[in-house]
């Protein structure tokens, strides 16, 4: 197991890593290069790589435990926007049981596991990528580079373009949104990522525009 935090500011990931006390390599990807190399477009997602360095499963949603949130009733009296977010989160597909079983099967059987794909299958099963989506990766990279070397304002036009070119890529959007919606000096990121004056999108409205929570993740194809 190797975990990779997609965080352009490593200080945001470090407290979570410290709390987890991991025994596996727990890495931080400050440039989102693994988005490009492996096809991550949201979190959590995972790829499987065999002993020979070959991918045997493409990037797909990688939950292994059902969130208690899914079985809770939406509390009454919530502010309307929070209530809508709650309902969308609850509607995100849950494939955790099947995905966990598939991992265990691969751990036991390796290449003989029915879940391990051939090289041709794994390429074909990875997400489609258009020229616009490919360009979005370059735009996001330019934004990250300029955020780090020049300042946030220099990044914004490139991140706006990345969002417009590849709206299905939530890592590009959520990473950028949280930088402008988290109050100065806050110890934790703002996960609500609501409407803001910098970007046209925000979490709730973009999820609804994309078809709702049911369309939010790349579901593992395990059959």
């Amino acid at each position: 197991m190797v975990t990779v935090a997609l965080d352009i500011n490593p200080e945001h990931a470090k407290p979570w890593i410290a709390l987890a006390e991991p025994t596996h390599p727990s890495l931080i990807d400050t440039t989102h290069i693994t988005d490009e190399l492996f096809g991550f477009i949201n979190v959590p997602m995972a790829v499987w790589i065999d002993e020979n360095g070959m991918l045997v499963r493409p990037a797909e949603a990688a939950s292994i435990e059902r969130s208690p949130l899914r079985d809770q009733e939406v509390p009454t009296g919530l502010p309307p926007r929070i209530e809508k977010m709650y309902r969308e989160v609850k509607s995100i597909p849950d494939d955790s049981e099947g995905y966990r079983s598939a991992i265990l099967d691969w751990a036991r059987h390796g290449a003989a596991s029915k879940y391990a794909m051939s090289p041709e299958e794994v390429v074909a099963a990875s997400q489609p990528v258009s020229s616009n989506q490919a360009r979005a990766a370059a735009c996001f990279a330019l934004g990250e580079h300029l955020h780090r070397t020049v300042g946030h304002d220099a990044a914004v036009p490139w991140w706006r373009e990345a969002h417009a070119l590849y709206p299905e890529n939530w890592t590009y959007k959520r990473q950028a949104w949280t930088l402008v919606t988290t109050p100065e000096g806050a110890t934790e990121n703002d996960l609500m990522q609501g409407p803001n004056e910098v970007y046209s999108g925000n979490w709730l409205d973009d999820v609804i525009a994309a078809g709702g929570g049911g369309s939010y993740s790349v579901r593992p194809q395990l059959e």
Partner: peptide
Amino acid sequence: RIIMVAWASW
């Protein structure tokens, strides 16, 4: 064998 899991603080 490696399972590489992407996550984020955001």
